[in-house]
Design a protein around this nucleic acid. Sequence first.
DNA 1: CGCCTATAGATGTATATTGTATCTATCCGG
DNA 2: CCGGATAGATACAATATACATCTATAGGCG
Lengths: 124, 124
Amino acid sequence: MSTQNDSNGALPRHYLKPCLLLLLAEGPSHGYELLEQVRRMGIKGAEPGGLYRYLRAMEKEEMVSSWWEPSQAGPARRTYVLTEQGRKGLNESVQSLRDVREILVSLLDRYDTLPNRAGSSSRS
Amino acid sequence: MSTQNDSNGALPRHYLKPCLLLLLAEGPSHGYELLEQVRRMGIKGAEPGGLYRYLRAMEKEEMVSSWWEPSQAGPARRTYVLTEQGRKGLNESVQSLRDVREILVSLLDRYDTLPNRAGSSSRS
DNA sequence: CGCCTATAGATGTATATTGTATCTATCCGG
DNA sequence: CCGGATAGATACAATATACATCTATAGGCG
């Protein structure tokens, strides 16, 4: 019961956090919009619960700050902006994502050079 | 309490599983050796507990099979090999890692084109 | 021999993280 | 007035992870 479900590239905290920081580095936003942006980035496993939780947690860490903002259409929104701290956090997150990318790339390369005895499409 | 510790590129299940499948696709091996190989691949967060548990779990899913093998120096080892199933699992895992890589790459690109008002190294 | 270390594997458990469902509230159209 | 979309928040169960611990074997050393 621990290798279940890999059919999603669910992208948990390791991705959601840098994503949110990046999006906020591009400009202030609010939860609902961030959710849609994150999803548009291809992150399937993004759900409201986790996202709102994340935003509040990041606020507690002073990576972001927020305030209520009334909207003329619909309920009030909590608008988030990146703090100085958050900018630093983004930089660090990105650095570790670069590491991850390298590991990923080398793993994928390694897979591609695997002698695949089964159903190989190799030519000549 | 949810954005704690990002200082590691800890690479949880999403990476451990494909890693193990890849390594086993390269040839049979045993837990202790796999642990060291995984670590050599740059995955810091790999610990024995999780790894052994993972192997057993994958066996339950018939991705791998194993048997005890005596060793002339030290305690007996459980040798693992990839099954047909496991090979398929690897292929699928890899596909989803490719998706992850794409997301990662585009995210990183997006970060690089960010107008960085702070400490920018832009000239002229 | 008795003890220590390295190798090898496995497990128990406390805590952290997730997923899912549910709840509140506001505004708009009909 | 009602239903749906927007917006945010939270409770709770289910999982996953990290960490420590436990077994066992072989080999070296005093």
